[in-house]
Design a protein around this nucleic acid. Structure first.
Lengths: 365, 365
DNA sequence: CGGCAAAATGTAAACGATTACATAGGCCCC
DNA sequence: GGGGCCTATGTAATCGTTTACATTTTGCCG
């Protein structure tokens, strides 16, 4: 592999000159620059970005740490991050850590010197401590982490509001036995969504019923299983709020197997509004989160932190959710040829009937 | 940020000793090692992996180049790659290139010196040339690329066989007007699947009908649109073979809107068998590809290439597909309470009724 | 043509590690 | 007590760049 030295020799100049050519310094004579470029071409020279990073101490790489890479949610987050990073000339060093805190810490260490900043998504409750031993002032954005803004930049989803709004909506439709399929134990998002569910019920004077709170782990399978349990318990729910769409998909499937009509017999709602939610049968009502925009937002915040380095001030930001009502919860006409209701609407996503969670909040008070 | 020099000074030893402590060399006295570790802890020292790479010329990082990051397919590939990489102590530097060949080349250059090897997924037809100007012998595995094995390591999906098998199956069920929803123009996988479709028809003495070949781009939306077009054309198909599952989902949705029963009025089949295919309504028949295993396979091949470097011999490998028959194509009982047919089956994926494409091939001859 | 800025190029010290080689102790044994 | 040999440590070159500073070349003017 040719190095800068080889090129310098081949072109009969010094390494500094070659370097300058590649860094678009304007103090190289055009004839020299051409000579250098030709030499480089002849030798197949490509600058060694690792060495360059060492020397400039900028890597143009962002580290991304995710709890897992499973499902459309993460895929969308990454897409949002990658697009934004790429647009700004940055690459992504990705690592998913299955194995709890030691794994995260190991991943963080191994990123030292390879990234300019970090996006860490870590909805585990014990998030805070693991971050503490990063070099102070290291550019870092946390996603869905239960920490205060004093020490970190953090972006969270409006889990509580979103869940609240959805449950209120179900209540408005007259549902009383509203069940929830909970998310992973000890997960921040899951806990917040559960809190929102309970709050909305309390608000309506309903007291929580343990039998209506089924456990899940955010997978289709767990949604399927939880729904079967709910159907066999007492009281039988008239609506099921799954705390993410994957579990809602499992729920729909279980209801079909059991011969229950959605939404006539049981209403179903999800959370996240992954792209395919509108193509389900029936189209799934969900709490919309613009997932890739979330990734984008995190990336922009991180890039800013990198740019301003020390002078950067931490903020906590809540990413808003929107209620998207489709047929699965029974608000829209649930039968008929369907052409008059909510078509999958190929063109623009923003044309879809939707209420911001805040607008619904106002309506409900 | 503390460097090795600071630690050396703090511990009263030379940098070499510190380095040895971190590289588990056994020729450091235990008391010295402890002293060094304590100093490091006091200073919050973390080795600079970038610098380490430069000096060892091993980065412990794999570069991954994908055409896009959209949808469950890529998410699964990445997951397979990441898991395997991680298990072997490697990280992932990911880049998706939206912008055709110049983009790919730029991405490749910018990975020089930051990765030990590359996995490139690039189903564009003009793949070959862009790879040519990599340093000869650079560890590289291509996914879904239309190139010969002479110059590259390449893994392709059994697109042709899979499509062929699925269409044969539909023919066996008595379908005659079998439509296809094609994939992205100029895409290798898409072209092969189309070829398989045509071959199976020809084999059965059917001549291809242009009106039954609808265009698509692998998105739900395009599947939706293509299906509407097919329904308005002549002849109206009795079965629709979508060349990936996303488009099949769009097709199901369009058929529902149009009031057509699946599979009674129209049968539907997909390709890829993404995890959620079995939770659709009706559960989707599809050509199963173990996507994350594909990622794993590619990674193992790459790791081997890295290990053996020059002595490595290129191979072309075809990743097998399996026919997974669920209700959407009408082979299984299509109505009824459904509990006797194909449950979403929580436990193990391999318990599902499936035929390898090769076994079906034999059966059909 | 000499002198002098300005422009172009070269020299060499970083960046933060690893590692071949040199060297300093400690121990044993004659 | 000194030669020889481990073992533990130190010295310094190296990886491939960038860049401050030094030096040379160029162009221009008087």
């Amino acid at each position: 592999m040719a190095t800068i030295k080889d090129v310098a020799h081949e072109a009969g100049v010094s390494v500094a000159t070659v370097s300058r050519v590649y860094n678009e310094s304007d103090l190289v004579r055009e004839t020299t620059a051409t000579r250098v470029r030709e030499a480089a071409l002849r030798l197949g020279y490509v600058p060694h970005s690792g060495a360059r990073s060492l020397s400039t101490s900028r890597t143009h790489t962002l580290g991304v740490l995710l709890p897992d890479l499973y499902g459309e949610f993460f895929s969308e987050v990454i897409r949002g991050i990658d697009q934004t990073a790429q647009r700004n000339g940055f690459h992504l060093l990705i690592s998913s850590s299955h194995d709890g805190r030691p794994g995260v810490e190991a991943a963080l260490r191994s990123m030292r010197g390879r990234v300019d900043g970090l996006i860490v998504m870590w909805p585990e409750m014990n998030a805070e401590t693991a971050m503490r031993n990063l070099p102070a002032g290291f550019p870092l954005v946390l996603l869905s982490a239960p920490v205060g803004p004093d020490a970190f930049d953090v972006i969270t989803i409006a889990n509580y509001d979103g869940a609240c709004a959805m449950v209120r909506h179900l209540l408005q439709l007259g549902h009383r036995g509203i069940a929830i399929i909970k998310g992973v134990e000890g997960n921040f998002d899951a806990a917040e969504r559960l809190r929102g569910y309970r709050a909305a019920l309390a608000e309506a004077g309903e007291s929580p019923i343990a039998a209506l709170e089924a456990s899940g782990d955010f997978s289709e399978r767990s949604g399927f299983r939880a729904t079967n349990e709910l159907l066999q318990g007492r009281p039988v729910p008239s609506a099921i709020f799954a705390t993410n769409d994957s579990m809602a998909i499992g729920a729909l499937s279980a209801l079909r197997e059991a011969g229950r009509k959605v939404p006539d017999d049981v209403a179903v709602a999800g959370f996240d509004d992954i792209p395919m939610a509108r193509y389900l049968d029936p189209p799934l009502s969900s709490v919309h989160v613009d997932i890739s925009a979330l990734g984008e937002r995190a990336t922009l915040r991180l890039l800013e932190a990198i740019r301003t380095k020390a002078a950067h001030v931490h903020r906590a930001e809540t990413f808003p959710t929107t209620l998207v009502i489709r047929r699965s919860c029974g608000a829209a006409p649930s039968t008929g040829s369907g052409q008059a209701t909510l078509p999958p609407r190929p063109p623009a996503p923003d044309a879809e009937p939707a209420m911001t969670s805040s607008s619904l909040l106002r309506g409900a008070l």
